[in-house]
């Protein structure tokens, strides 16, 4: 299962132009986690023209608030959270350079259009399988907003992380009719 097209994060436009909505891929490389509060902060900082704690160019943002690691592990359970709650912040983040997002579930019309316009990509990851996905994460360190605890931004080093393309750079969207 799931050993399809391989892709490396962070992403460039040429990495993703051939991707098609509905396609299974496997991602390796480095992604940044961010969920509700980290999004809200990044959004506020961009709006206020403040320097960001991370360079967003080419980054893949993973909507994930992991559980803490048990001894000898780098991270705990680490599946995706619902993407729709990030919709209000996403177009600005795309305009600020992010190239990919990983989450679960539907996105707003504005996000679908923004992904197309920015030639980016939205992936969904197996939802509710955080213990299984743990084995796909090789490294984890805090990247920003440490005080947010589970909602901080973590830099995750992943290997063969299983994903499905949900919005491709042409704006094709697997949940169009839902």
């Amino acid at each position: 299962m799931f050993h399809k097209k391989k892709i490396r994060a962070p992403l460039t436009e040429s990495d993703i132009l051939g991707l098609k909505a509905g396609e299974e891929i496997s991602m390796s490389g480095v992604v940044l986690t961010a969920r509700d509060q980290a999004h809200s902060r990044l959004y506020g900082m961009i709006k206020a023209d403040k320097a960001l704690p991370v360079d967003l160019k080419g980054q893949v943002i993973y909507y994930c608030g992991p559980t803490p690691p048990r001894a000898a592990k780098v991270i705990g359970s680490c599946g995706p959270t619902t993407s729709g709650r990030m919709d209000r912040f996403t177009p600005l983040l795309l305009e600020s350079g992010i190239k990919g997002m990983i989450g679960k579930g539907r996105r707003s019309k504005e996000v679908v259009e923004s992904v197309r316009r920015c030639r980016a990509v939205y992936f969904v990851a197996p939802a509710g399988a955080g213990a299984y996905l743990n084995s796909k994460v090789l490294g984890c360190e805090v990247s920003a907003f440490e005080g947010l605890g589970p909602e901080a931004m973590y830099k995750l080093r992943i290997k063969d992380f299983p994903l499905i393309v949900a919005i491709d750079p042409e704006g094709r969207y697997i949940y169009e009719n839902m």
């Binding site: 299962m1 799931f2 299974e24 994930c64 608030g65 992991p66 559980t67 048990r70 592990k73 705990g76 359970s77 680490c78 599946g79 959270t81 197996p126 509710g128 399988a129 955080g130 213990a131 299984y132 743990n134 084995s135 299983p162 499905i164």
Partner: peptide
Amino acid sequence: TIQKDMLGILIRNAAVAQKEQMAICQDT
């Protein structure tokens, strides 16, 4: 089908969680 792959992942997830005493889902 991808659907069957995904259900297979859920079954493996339950096994990993129990064996490693790790949360089934990060939203505990």
